[in-house]
Design a protein around this nucleic acid. Structure first.
Lengths: 413, 413
DNA sequence: GGCTTTTTTTCGAGCCCCAAAAAAATACTG
DNA sequence: CAGTATTTTTTTGGGGCTCGAAAAAAAGCC
């Protein structure tokens, strides 16, 4: 049951609030923080003095050309980049990428790797992940505070507690507890989360005006994935990462999906489905992986003249539209960000998509639904992982509850 | 943005916590409250002394036959029934019902009314609602603390802020701001919420073991409605009450639905749809309202022998199954409570429903999904409204924030 | 009746936040 | 250039809250 608030929780929460305000605003002055948090100046003054003393925040001397204002000038507070660091791991089809990010959110090191995820045995896949992380951690050039958190973003279904990959389209393997493996290997707390969820988190940080309380991020790629933010927080299922939008049933008993079932949205709108349809192959044809270049060529052909290619995109739009319409029936319409290769072909998809939405319960305000496109998913996923890891450090390490506060990285003050 | 915690909020929150603990547990002792809230005995002692002093709680003398235990016996704390009262209004097809409920949750007065909602003009419908509430409020027999909250449960879509009915199947009228109307008329804060959402709230209180964090309540009646609880809190859409499960598209371009669109789940599983199918009428046939008795007769015939009646229930099950499967793809499986007339025919629906779920992404663990049935929706809706109103009083009136605390009803201490 | 056990209350200490006052740092003004 | 105005930040004192420890209360046990 929900628990009472102890007296000591108060400071902890307000500390976290101040850190969060600084992370969000960049270089706010104490006065600005007081305004956004609603706490008094004295409280902010005391808390920020603590945080500076502990090396978590720093007064930013490199202030921009002073704003020529009367009165004592504001002193910007910034996150101390050396207070800590986090590490992100992004695993997607045939691709593994790792980055080290300082406490202020800047990438300080990076490594990418191609590998054949579809056929790798379990030990090898895990081994590659562990090895690439180890290389980054042991890099002697790495001159940031110790890495305090590892966040992994992975294409596939993960569990609610962000411990394991349960199922994934990028490998036949299932139930790999990546978070536990990394934690045991490096002694650093780790998480494993769904890639589309991380995309949604990233969008929230990138453009908080547009993506704040309620929005949807849809990945249009080999498969169809979704990240959903409702009432400002990331939506997850009761047991898994949830939001398996691509596997909602569009047509009962319809086209064959990569997941083995029939009639899923993905079986009409995934890259392989568009390809299959454009090539006039059977709806029962085994899904094949199509390269990004091939997809771009397909889209070009569809734009050039009417034909099976254009029809394939039309059908993809229809499936996505009915799927979105069903989703909107449950949650009401919200802004949508289309991410991934096929987002670049959204012009071909949109007309049929809007038409389909209009036929659904969620489509009453279909004209007001806004779409945004972003062809490149990788940076988004990494950014989401980074912010997830950093906010964990903010809240659980630099504003801890009962357990003793650990050393706050290198002190600068 | 999220706001810092002021020092005075502390007491307010902990007061609310204590009240909530008492409402949940019935007659807990101070020691029990300390255990569930995690606060110290001294704090609980101080807060409960305040609450008793203010007439919100009372020490229950009528303790059951003392449990023959060593040591000072525990003193049960109970809600003081006279501390306040709330009023519930339930409006559904051709039926209006009002109840007055004391602070401890007991019904103290009640009135029900048949009326022809489908054809009533706007003023008359509103007038009837206002009139029935006025009669209850002016009843001289009413001997409880002043009514502090009105909660209305209504079949149809309401807005997120629980102010208005936006659309409803029980009347052609739209956008009636019932909450504002009642507030203005009686000067008592009011809300208007979706009936299925109130069912879900009631289930949470009735059987917190079974219905706690994640579950679904589905109303099988004239139409198909849903109330959804995720992570312990009632789910609502971004703009409306949300969860328009009945209007998810089951078959694009399929059977005609009461909402005017085609292929909705309701167009296969609503009473009128089952009737239409059993009578071998066209899928385009205009929906008609079918009485409960007729539906029970239909179910009896379907049980008796195979035929169009049984097939109609089968198709209803299929539609519900695919709808639930799509929902489960988004939120993962969760226990389901089937409520309403057709829930009594769930034996006819279940086989096809389970078969359909098994074909969807959410169906991986279809065997583990549990269903419960409850043929009578009205008591549930009322109970949900009552608990909604009472918890509002608990939190906003008896544990208020900045604004001055209003008199706490009749004092008993 | 005294002892044990359990619950509840009382009391002092330590924190935390706030408001007001003071200090600091800059621009404006003549 | 000195003095004044303005704005930000720090300091100080006060009131509240929760907690732990001790005391008080209320029973059963022997």
């Amino acid at each position: 049951m929900s628990v009472g608030i102890r007296h000591d929780d108060l400071r902890r929460r307000n500390r976290a609030m101040v850190i969060s305000a600084v992370r969000r605003a960049g270089q706010p002055s104490r006065t600005e923080i007081a305004a956004t948090t609603g706490l008094s100046h004295s409280t902010i003054s005391a808390i920020s003095a603590d945080l500076i003393q502990e090396g978590i925040l720093a007064e930013s001397k490199a202030s921009e050309p002073t704003a020529l204002k009367r009165g004592r000038p504001q002193i910007g507070l910034a996150l101390n980049p050396e207070a800590a660091a986090v590490l992100t791991v992004v695993l997607s089809l045939n691709f593994l990428s790792v980055a080290v990010i300082d406490y202020a959110g800047q990438v300080v090191a990076e490594e990418q790797l191609r590998l054949d995820t579809l056929v790798m045995p379990r030990d090898e896949l895990i081994g590659e992940c562990v090895a690439i992380v180890r290389r980054r951690l042991q890099d002697p050039d790495l001159d940031v505070g110790s890495v305090a958190r590892i966040a992994m973003g992975i294409q596939g279904i993960t569990d609610t507690h962000a411990r394991a990959m349960l199922w994934s389209p990028i490998t036949p393997l299932t139930d790999i507890p990546f978070a536990d493996i990394l934690e045991k290997e490096f002694g650093i707390p780790a998480t494993t989360e769904n890639d589309c969820n991380m995309m949604a988190v990233a969008l929230q940080w990138r453009d908080p005006e547009r993506y704040r309380d309620d929005f949807i991020a849809i990945l249009l790629s080999h498969g169809i994935g979704m990240g959903l933010v409702l009432k400002g927080t990331l939506f997850t299922g009761t047991h898994s990462s949830g939001g398996e939008f691509g596997h909602m049933i569009h047509r009962p008993g319809g086209a064959l999906c990569r997941c083995g079932r029939r009639g899923c949205v993905e079986a009409y709108a995934g890259n392989y489905a568009i390809w299959r349809s454009a090539m006039k192959m059977s709806e029962d044809a085994e899904p094949v992986d199509v390269g990004d270049a091939d997809m771009r060529a397909l889209a070009a052909k569809a734009r050039e003249k009417d034909g099976p290619e254009r029809e394939a995109y039309r059908r993809a739009g229809e499936a996505l539209g009915f799927g979105l319409g069903n989703l909107f029936a449950l949650i009401d319409p919200a802004p949508v960000a289309m991410v991934g290769v096929s987002a670049a072909a959204f012009d071909l998809i949109e007309p049929a998509l809007r038409e389909a939405i209009a036929q659904t319960a969620g489509g009453q305000h279909s004209k007001s639904i806004s779409f945004d496109t972003e062809p490149n998913e990788l940076p988004l996923i990494r950014e989401g992982c980074a912010m997830r890891a950093l906010t964990f450090v903010d809240q659980e390490i630099f504003a801890p509850g009962v357990q003793a506060r650990s050393g706050a990285g290198k002190n600068v003050a």
